[in-house]
Nucleic acid binder design. Structure first.
Length: 307
DNA sequence: AAAATTTGACCCGT
DNA sequence: ACGGGTCAAATTTT
Protein backbone atom coordinates (compact mmCIF):
# COMPACT_ATOMS: atom_id res chain seq x y z
CA UNK A 1 0.00 0.00 0.00
CA UNK A 2 1.85 2.92 -1.18
CA UNK A 3 0.65 5.93 -2.96
CA UNK A 4 -2.26 4.29 -4.57
CA UNK A 5 -4.85 6.37 -2.97
CA UNK A 6 -5.12 10.01 -3.47
CA UNK A 7 -4.76 9.66 -7.15
CA UNK A 8 -7.50 7.13 -7.42
CA UNK A 9 -10.03 9.48 -8.88
CA UNK A 10 -7.66 10.96 -11.33
CA UNK A 11 -6.31 7.63 -12.41
CA UNK A 12 -9.78 6.40 -13.06
CA UNK A 13 -10.30 9.48 -15.08
CA UNK A 14 -7.24 8.83 -17.10
CA UNK A 15 -8.46 5.37 -17.71
CA UNK A 16 -11.72 6.59 -19.11
CA UNK A 17 -9.94 9.23 -21.01
CA UNK A 18 -7.55 6.74 -22.47
CA UNK A 19 -10.29 4.43 -23.47
CA UNK A 20 -12.40 7.03 -25.14
CA UNK A 21 -9.32 8.37 -26.82
CA UNK A 22 -8.57 4.92 -28.10
CA UNK A 23 -12.12 4.61 -29.34
CA UNK A 24 -11.79 7.91 -31.11
CA UNK A 25 -8.60 6.84 -32.72
CA UNK A 26 -10.17 3.68 -33.99
CA UNK A 27 -13.11 5.56 -35.39
CA UNK A 28 -10.87 8.04 -37.07
CA UNK A 29 -8.92 5.21 -38.52
CA UNK A 30 -12.08 3.71 -39.81
CA UNK A 31 -12.87 6.97 -41.52
CA UNK A 32 -9.49 7.08 -43.08
CA UNK A 33 -9.82 3.55 -44.35
CA UNK A 34 -13.27 4.09 -45.74
CA UNK A 35 -12.08 7.20 -47.47
CA UNK A 36 -9.25 5.31 -49.05
CA UNK A 37 -11.50 2.46 -50.00
CA UNK A 38 -13.81 4.89 -51.67
CA UNK A 39 -10.94 6.31 -53.66
CA UNK A 40 -10.29 2.84 -54.97
CA UNK A 41 -13.78 1.55 -55.48
CA UNK A 42 -15.58 4.49 -56.97
CA UNK A 43 -13.34 5.02 -59.97
CA UNK A 44 -13.63 1.36 -60.84
CA UNK A 45 -17.37 1.40 -60.63
CA UNK A 46 -17.57 4.58 -62.59
CA UNK A 47 -15.53 3.11 -65.35
CA UNK A 48 -17.55 -0.03 -65.38
CA UNK A 49 -20.24 2.41 -66.18
CA UNK A 50 -23.06 2.08 -63.86
CA UNK A 51 -25.91 3.74 -62.28
CA UNK A 52 -24.72 1.88 -59.26
CA UNK A 53 -21.89 4.27 -58.87
CA UNK A 54 -24.17 6.85 -57.44
CA UNK A 55 -25.68 4.43 -55.01
CA UNK A 56 -22.28 3.30 -53.90
CA UNK A 57 -21.14 6.85 -53.53
CA UNK A 58 -24.16 7.55 -51.40
CA UNK A 59 -23.42 4.56 -49.24
CA UNK A 60 -19.88 5.70 -48.68
CA UNK A 61 -21.20 9.09 -47.81
CA UNK A 62 -23.60 7.58 -45.32
CA UNK A 63 -20.96 5.45 -43.72
CA UNK A 64 -18.67 8.39 -43.30
CA UNK A 65 -21.50 10.45 -41.99
CA UNK A 66 -22.32 7.82 -39.41
CA UNK A 67 -18.83 7.64 -38.04
CA UNK A 68 -18.51 11.39 -38.14
CA UNK A 69 -21.57 11.69 -35.96
CA UNK A 70 -20.39 8.99 -33.64
CA UNK A 71 -17.09 10.75 -33.27
CA UNK A 72 -18.80 14.03 -32.58
CA UNK A 73 -20.98 12.42 -29.94
CA UNK A 74 -18.04 10.80 -28.27
CA UNK A 75 -16.20 14.04 -28.24
CA UNK A 76 -19.08 15.76 -26.60
CA UNK A 77 -19.09 13.15 -23.91
CA UNK A 78 -15.42 13.64 -23.36
CA UNK A 79 -15.93 17.32 -23.20
CA UNK A 80 -18.62 17.04 -20.56
CA UNK A 81 -16.50 14.72 -18.61
CA UNK A 82 -13.54 16.99 -18.65
CA UNK A 83 -15.66 19.89 -17.51
CA UNK A 84 -17.03 18.02 -14.56
CA UNK A 85 -13.62 16.98 -13.47
CA UNK A 86 -11.97 20.13 -14.47
CA UNK A 87 -9.99 20.64 -11.37
CA UNK A 88 -8.48 17.22 -11.35
CA UNK A 89 -7.68 17.33 -14.98
CA UNK A 90 -6.21 20.74 -14.94
CA UNK A 91 -3.87 19.97 -12.13
CA UNK A 92 -2.98 16.63 -13.52
CA UNK A 93 -2.30 17.68 -17.05
CA UNK A 94 -0.74 21.00 -16.71
CA UNK A 95 1.81 20.28 -19.32
CA UNK A 96 -0.51 18.94 -21.92
CA UNK A 97 -2.41 21.88 -23.23
CA UNK A 98 -3.50 20.25 -26.37
CA UNK A 99 -5.27 17.50 -24.60
CA UNK A 100 -7.52 19.31 -22.26
CA UNK A 101 -9.31 22.31 -23.47
CA UNK A 102 -11.13 24.05 -20.74
CA UNK A 103 -14.19 25.92 -21.78
CA UNK A 104 -14.49 29.16 -19.94
CA UNK A 105 -18.14 30.25 -19.88
CA UNK A 106 -17.99 33.94 -19.16
CA UNK A 107 -14.70 35.31 -20.20
CA UNK A 108 -15.60 38.92 -20.55
CA UNK A 109 -11.92 39.53 -20.74
CA UNK A 110 -11.38 42.01 -23.47
CA UNK A 111 -14.51 43.89 -24.19
CA UNK A 112 -15.15 47.60 -24.31
CA UNK A 113 -12.30 49.06 -26.17
CA UNK A 114 -14.09 50.28 -29.23
CA UNK A 115 -11.20 51.76 -31.08
CA UNK A 116 -11.70 53.25 -34.48
CA UNK A 117 -10.12 50.69 -36.67
CA UNK A 118 -10.57 50.53 -40.40
CA UNK A 119 -13.10 47.83 -39.67
CA UNK A 120 -12.73 45.96 -42.87
CA UNK A 121 -15.47 43.52 -42.28
CA UNK A 122 -16.71 41.29 -39.56
CA UNK A 123 -14.99 38.00 -40.05
CA UNK A 124 -16.31 34.94 -38.49
CA UNK A 125 -13.54 32.90 -37.22
CA UNK A 126 -13.78 29.23 -36.81
CA UNK A 127 -13.40 28.11 -33.27
CA UNK A 128 -11.39 25.16 -32.27
CA UNK A 129 -14.30 23.45 -30.65
CA UNK A 130 -16.47 23.55 -33.70
CA UNK A 131 -17.59 20.25 -34.99
CA UNK A 132 -15.03 18.91 -37.30
CA UNK A 133 -13.57 15.63 -38.32
CA UNK A 134 -9.91 15.02 -38.74
CA UNK A 135 -8.17 12.18 -40.39
CA UNK A 136 -4.98 11.20 -42.04
CA UNK A 137 -4.87 9.88 -45.54
CA UNK A 138 -2.62 9.47 -48.53
CA UNK A 139 -5.44 10.67 -50.78
CA UNK A 140 -6.52 14.02 -49.43
CA UNK A 141 -8.34 15.18 -52.50
CA UNK A 142 -10.75 12.51 -53.18
CA UNK A 143 -13.74 13.02 -51.03
CA UNK A 144 -16.45 13.43 -53.59
CA UNK A 145 -16.62 17.18 -53.28
CA UNK A 146 -15.15 20.10 -55.11
CA UNK A 147 -13.02 22.53 -53.20
CA UNK A 148 -11.59 25.93 -53.87
CA UNK A 149 -8.36 26.84 -52.18
CA UNK A 150 -8.54 30.15 -50.41
CA UNK A 151 -5.43 30.25 -48.34
CA UNK A 152 -2.23 28.70 -47.21
CA UNK A 153 -0.33 29.14 -44.02
CA UNK A 154 2.92 28.07 -42.56
CA UNK A 155 2.17 26.53 -39.23
CA UNK A 156 4.50 26.71 -36.31
CA UNK A 157 6.82 23.83 -35.86
CA UNK A 158 5.64 22.02 -38.91
CA UNK A 159 7.53 21.43 -42.07
CA UNK A 160 4.69 21.67 -44.52
CA UNK A 161 2.22 24.50 -44.97
CA UNK A 162 -1.47 24.06 -44.33
CA UNK A 163 -3.88 24.70 -47.15
CA UNK A 164 -7.40 26.00 -46.66
CA UNK A 165 -10.27 25.00 -48.87
CA UNK A 166 -13.89 25.94 -49.06
CA UNK A 167 -16.65 24.33 -51.02
CA UNK A 168 -16.66 25.45 -54.63
CA UNK A 169 -20.36 26.12 -54.32
CA UNK A 170 -20.10 28.34 -51.34
CA UNK A 171 -21.27 31.26 -53.40
CA UNK A 172 -24.04 29.75 -55.44
CA UNK A 173 -25.37 27.38 -52.86
CA UNK A 174 -24.10 28.86 -49.67
CA UNK A 175 -22.43 25.64 -48.71
CA UNK A 176 -20.49 26.14 -45.54
CA UNK A 177 -18.19 23.18 -45.72
CA UNK A 178 -14.48 23.83 -45.48
CA UNK A 179 -11.44 21.73 -45.00
CA UNK A 180 -7.76 22.05 -44.32
CA UNK A 181 -5.02 19.86 -45.66
CA UNK A 182 -1.49 19.57 -44.45
CA UNK A 183 1.18 17.11 -45.38
CA UNK A 184 2.36 15.13 -42.44
CA UNK A 185 5.87 14.98 -41.28
CA UNK A 186 7.53 11.95 -42.78
CA UNK A 187 8.25 9.81 -39.80
CA UNK A 188 11.51 8.26 -40.75
CA UNK A 189 13.72 5.93 -38.82
CA UNK A 190 11.76 2.91 -39.71
CA UNK A 191 13.12 0.75 -42.46
CA UNK A 192 10.17 1.57 -44.59
CA UNK A 193 11.37 3.35 -47.67
CA UNK A 194 8.45 4.03 -49.90
CA UNK A 195 6.29 5.11 -47.08
CA UNK A 196 3.31 6.88 -48.59
CA UNK A 197 3.07 10.58 -48.06
CA UNK A 198 0.27 11.18 -45.65
CA UNK A 199 -1.88 14.24 -45.33
CA UNK A 200 -3.85 15.40 -42.36
CA UNK A 201 -7.26 16.53 -43.42
CA UNK A 202 -9.78 18.28 -41.26
CA UNK A 203 -13.33 18.85 -42.38
CA UNK A 204 -15.47 21.58 -40.92
CA UNK A 205 -19.16 21.92 -41.42
CA UNK A 206 -21.55 19.92 -43.49
CA UNK A 207 -22.02 20.13 -47.20
CA UNK A 208 -25.33 21.64 -48.09
CA UNK A 209 -24.67 21.88 -51.79
CA UNK A 210 -26.56 19.57 -54.05
CA UNK A 211 -24.58 16.95 -55.87
CA UNK A 212 -27.16 16.90 -58.61
CA UNK A 213 -25.59 19.87 -60.23
CA UNK A 214 -22.22 18.31 -60.09
CA UNK A 215 -22.12 15.00 -61.82
CA UNK A 216 -19.02 13.10 -62.65
CA UNK A 217 -18.50 14.82 -65.93
CA UNK A 218 -18.26 18.15 -64.26
CA UNK A 219 -16.11 17.21 -61.36
CA UNK A 220 -12.71 18.42 -62.23
CA UNK A 221 -9.41 17.56 -60.85
CA UNK A 222 -9.91 19.88 -58.03
CA UNK A 223 -6.24 19.61 -57.43
CA UNK A 224 -4.62 19.20 -60.77
CA UNK A 225 -3.64 22.83 -60.90
CA UNK A 226 -0.35 23.65 -59.36
CA UNK A 227 0.30 21.92 -56.20
CA UNK A 228 3.35 20.60 -54.67
CA UNK A 229 5.84 23.10 -55.85
CA UNK A 230 6.58 26.05 -53.66
CA UNK A 231 4.58 24.66 -50.88
CA UNK A 232 1.08 23.98 -51.96
CA UNK A 233 0.66 20.66 -50.28
CA UNK A 234 -2.65 19.26 -49.48
CA UNK A 235 -4.29 17.08 -46.99
CA UNK A 236 -7.26 14.92 -46.74
CA UNK A 237 -10.45 14.83 -44.80
CA UNK A 238 -11.83 14.85 -41.36
CA UNK A 239 -14.11 16.70 -39.06
CA UNK A 240 -13.89 16.60 -35.33
CA UNK A 241 -13.07 18.78 -32.39
CA UNK A 242 -9.51 17.83 -32.00
CA UNK A 243 -6.86 16.42 -34.13
CA UNK A 244 -7.05 12.76 -34.29
CA UNK A 245 -4.22 11.16 -36.06
CA UNK A 246 -4.90 8.02 -37.86
CA UNK A 247 -2.75 5.66 -39.69
CA UNK A 248 -4.06 3.27 -42.18
CA UNK A 249 -3.90 -0.13 -40.66
CA UNK A 250 -6.12 -2.90 -39.62
CA UNK A 251 -7.06 -4.44 -36.37
CA UNK A 252 -4.40 -6.06 -34.41
CA UNK A 253 -2.08 -6.87 -31.67
CA UNK A 254 1.50 -6.12 -32.15
CA UNK A 255 1.91 -2.49 -32.73
CA UNK A 256 5.03 -2.57 -34.76
CA UNK A 257 4.04 -5.37 -37.03
CA UNK A 258 0.70 -3.83 -37.38
CA UNK A 259 2.14 -0.65 -38.69
CA UNK A 260 4.31 -2.38 -41.19
CA UNK A 261 1.65 -4.73 -42.40
CA UNK A 262 -0.96 -2.11 -42.70
CA UNK A 263 1.26 0.26 -44.51
CA UNK A 264 2.09 -2.39 -46.98
CA UNK A 265 -1.49 -3.29 -47.60
CA UNK A 266 -2.27 0.33 -47.87
CA UNK A 267 0.36 0.80 -50.53
CA UNK A 268 -0.77 -2.24 -52.40
CA UNK A 269 -4.27 -1.00 -52.39
CA UNK A 270 -3.30 2.33 -53.71
CA UNK A 271 -0.99 0.88 -56.29
CA UNK A 272 -3.82 -1.23 -57.50
CA UNK A 273 -5.96 1.79 -57.81
CA UNK A 274 -3.27 3.52 -59.76
CA UNK A 275 -2.89 0.60 -62.10
CA UNK A 276 -6.55 0.35 -62.53
CA UNK A 277 -6.88 3.93 -63.48
CA UNK A 278 -3.94 3.90 -65.82
CA UNK A 279 -5.07 0.77 -67.52
CA UNK A 280 -8.52 2.07 -68.05
CA UNK A 281 -7.31 5.34 -69.33
CA UNK A 282 -5.03 3.73 -71.82
CA UNK A 283 -7.72 1.45 -72.96
CA UNK A 284 -10.53 3.86 -73.34
CA UNK A 285 -8.51 6.90 -73.84
CA UNK A 286 -11.41 9.00 -72.92
CA UNK A 287 -10.95 8.64 -69.27
CA UNK A 288 -14.26 9.72 -68.04
CA UNK A 289 -12.60 11.76 -65.53
CA UNK A 290 -10.66 9.21 -63.70
CA UNK A 291 -8.56 11.93 -62.34
CA UNK A 292 -11.36 13.40 -60.38
CA UNK A 293 -11.76 10.19 -58.55
CA UNK A 294 -8.14 9.44 -58.17
CA UNK A 295 -6.42 12.28 -56.53
CA UNK A 296 -3.04 10.76 -56.80
CA UNK A 297 -1.23 13.92 -57.44
CA UNK A 298 1.78 15.89 -56.46
CA UNK A 299 4.27 14.52 -54.16
CA UNK A 300 2.71 11.17 -53.81
CA UNK A 301 4.16 8.21 -55.50
CA UNK A 302 1.40 7.53 -57.94
CA UNK A 303 2.46 6.39 -61.34
CA UNK A 304 -0.26 8.32 -62.98
CA UNK A 305 0.37 11.74 -64.32
CA UNK A 306 -2.66 13.73 -65.18
CA UNK A 307 -1.97 16.22 -67.89
C1' DA B 1 -12.26 36.50 -70.36
C1' DA B 2 -13.40 33.70 -66.64
C1' DA B 3 -12.03 30.81 -63.08
C1' DA B 4 -8.76 29.21 -59.73
C1' DT B 5 -4.66 29.96 -56.98
C1' DT B 6 -1.15 32.68 -54.65
C1' DT B 7 0.13 35.65 -51.21
C1' DG B 8 0.38 39.14 -47.78
C1' DA B 9 -2.58 41.84 -44.93
C1' DC B 10 -6.13 41.70 -41.76
C1' DC B 11 -8.46 39.93 -37.66
C1' DC B 12 -9.78 37.32 -33.89
C1' DG B 13 -9.37 33.69 -30.26
C1' DT B 14 -6.08 32.27 -26.90
C1' DA C 1 1.28 39.56 -28.40
C1' DC C 2 1.11 35.52 -31.03
C1' DG C 3 -0.60 32.03 -33.99
C1' DG C 4 -3.48 30.75 -37.31
C1' DG C 5 -7.93 31.34 -40.14
C1' DT C 6 -9.90 34.35 -43.77
C1' DC C 7 -10.09 38.04 -47.14
C1' DA C 8 -9.13 39.99 -51.42
C1' DA C 9 -5.90 41.95 -54.88
C1' DA C 10 -2.62 40.20 -57.94
C1' DT C 11 -1.23 36.55 -60.62
C1' DT C 12 -1.61 32.34 -63.12
C1' DT C 13 -4.19 28.84 -65.47
C1' DT C 14 -7.82 27.27 -68.37
Amino acid sequence: MKHIKKSSSSSRLFCDDDRSAAALREMAREQSLVTQLRAVVLPAIQLAGGERAEVVAQMFESILDCSAKAIAALKLLRLDHSQVDDEVLLTAMVDDKTRVRKIVPGDGGKDGDDNAKPLRRQRKRRRLGDDSVALETPVPHYDGHQWRKYGQKIINHTKHPRSYYKCTYKQEQDCKATKTVQQQQQQQDGGIEDEPVMYAVVYYGQHTCKPGQTDAAVVQTASSGRFGEGGGEELARSNSCSNISVTCSSVVVDNHQLMTASLESCCNLLDMAGDMATAEVNQYDQLFDVASFSPFDSGTAWAMDVN
